[in-house]
Amino acid sequence: MNKGIKASSDDIWKNRVDKVNAELFTLTYGSVVAQLVRDFKNDYQKVNQQLEKMGYNIGIRLVEDFLAKTGTGRCQSFKDTAEVVSKVGFKVFLNVTPQVTNWTSDGKTFSLILDENPLAEFVELPDDERAKKELWYSNVLTGVLKGALEMVQLEVDVNFVSDVLRGDDRTELRLQLIRFLKDEMPAGED
């Protein structure tokens, strides 16, 4: 892992990124979640699904902006990927750097701990016991990560395992590598 990674992503954030008020972003996302909760009449499974799907569509576009702005190459290992997602990806888009931790011994699964989560700032879940058990408020992130990583040939499974909004101690995303995808071949070759 390149040691300059933190310095360079700080620089990208400072100098190469157009920024908006985080509150505007938070309340725009909040309005989307609230609308879904209303539409699906508190069926939180469906809300989670829609958020993930929306995230996937965002992720496959977001990754191109990421590659263009940062000039990041393909990662050599899933360990590198974890560092880049946290220190470059989250940094240049949300200006936070989640902690990478809880690696499994096979090196295929890790957690991102979000000490700060701009999506959920000042948010309270609906006053409904089921919401606290079923809604993953920031679930758009699981889709974004899946979509973005798939575009660089990494098929991953991403899930929230805890969220401070639900009263948990911390907000934790779990990423599991399913497989490295192979480049597609032109027709007629193999």
Partner: peptide, 20 residues
């Protein structure tokens, strides 16, 4: 002074609101 995020995040979020 005010927390900020990358404008692309908001743009892409808004872009996806209609398909959603």
């Amino acid at each position: 002074i005010t927390p900020q995020v990358n404008a692309t995040c908001l743009d892409l979020l808004i872009n996806e609101m209609v398909p959603l």
